[in-house]
Amino acid sequence: MSNWALACTLVFVVVTILLSVQRKLGLEKEIAIGTVRAAVQLLLIGYVLHYVFDTRKPALIVLIVLLMITVASFNAGKRADRIPGIRLRIGLTLLVTESITMGLLLLLHIIEATPQYIIPVSGIIVGSSMIVSGLFLSQMNRELEAARGEIETLLTLGATPRQAIGHSVKRAIRSSMIPTFDGMKTVGLVQLPGMMTGMIVAGAEPIEAVRYQILIMFVLSSSAAVTAIMLGGISAKLWFTKEGLLRKG
């Protein structure tokens, strides 16, 4: 893509801002900040990736993946920032999800052990797991309101915190995984995923692009399951105070 073509893409931002002004949505500042941040962040990561791909240092790959996990943990943790220790649990969950998934991909030689494969696929895994974590926490917040009576009833009967919140955690796990599986059911029919589209635009054979997209969809399903189940397990006690009281929703 030429610089001119890239500059022309700003026309879409202008359309968005004009619509916001015309409809008095008050989103102009948000749109402007989002535009600048997206452009700067993507250009920066472009240069970083260019450097990493050239140097091929494993330590740099690990550093980038850890950075992704840290940012993702902080972002997903916003949904429950009143819960002490939640970001640490999310970080740990993302680290395990990434390790299991990437470990299998490399061990089974599904992808090549090069930065060109590891970093983008890690980004997809961590990004998707961040969304699953956020969905899980949002659902848990709703559970703390809606199922408070149920949880407290179990507590009054001598249940441990883990027993008392078990049903709620299970419902939140299910609810955070469903969008991933819904996406699998409609992919190709309703939406063409970004990675596949990008490959085709960049000149890859559609069938080759589809093969990679299938790989990504399957990876996302397992990473969603690992993330939701692990986060549900290691965060169960955090919804209670150290005195065993259920926290407010």
Partner: peptide, 21 residues
């Protein structure tokens, strides 16, 4: 006390009964 051990001996029955699923 562990809260669960306490509650096994001191049981609160609420005015609004909640049935478990």
């Amino acid at each position: 006390w562990q809260a669960k051990d306490w509650r096994k001996q001191v049981c609160y029955v609420a005015q609004q009964a909640v049935m478990l699923p």
